[in-house]
Amino acid sequence: MSSTNTEVGYNSKIEGGVVVTKLDAALNWIRSHSVWPMPMGLACCAIEFMSASCSRFDISRFGMEVTRFSPRQADCMIVAGTVTYKMAEAVRRIYDQMAEPKWVVAMGACASSGGMFRSYSTLQGVDRIIPVDVYISGCPTRPEALFDGLMALQEMIAKEPALRLLKRERPVKPLYFS
């Protein structure tokens, strides 16, 4: 992302310490390493999220440990668990309350596709109501898999045209399933 460029020098004393980069890259670097997840814990996968956030697996090693339980203070919703039709309404509302930029991770089979609950009460994948950025398989998802998914999300964030999106041209993300 960066390079030390010794030719940029306005003060010979700090010349070697100047880093040149693109603003996009800098913004994305900051963003992707301070993801504040909000666990939308709806079923058993949420238990796995808890273990991922505790000392044994320790989600803070990857710069996303500031778990917030308020949508206003979070930018990554981790949908962990079975989304019933009755709860889907609340999930969508909470998603709407999160400030941009925001990302969604579907954690586990249930959130990704309805999982084993092929029945009258279960929404068959949370991507029918909110745009999902990363899907993670597993029933339940292992903490390692969750980290893998979150790191994939970090990579995605790192490639976003952050400046352009900052200028309020952020398009509404499409639903992948409709």
């Binding site: 039709y85 969508r92 029945s119 009258y120 929404l123 068959q124 029918r128 109501i129 909110i130 409709s178």
Partner: peptide
């Protein structure tokens, strides 16, 4: 779908699984 707001935004329906 039970919630009109969500339907307006996403067009989701309660479908047979």
């Amino acid at each position: 779908f039970p919630d009109a707001d969500t339907v307006a935004q996403t067009g989701v329906k309660v479908m047979p699984a």
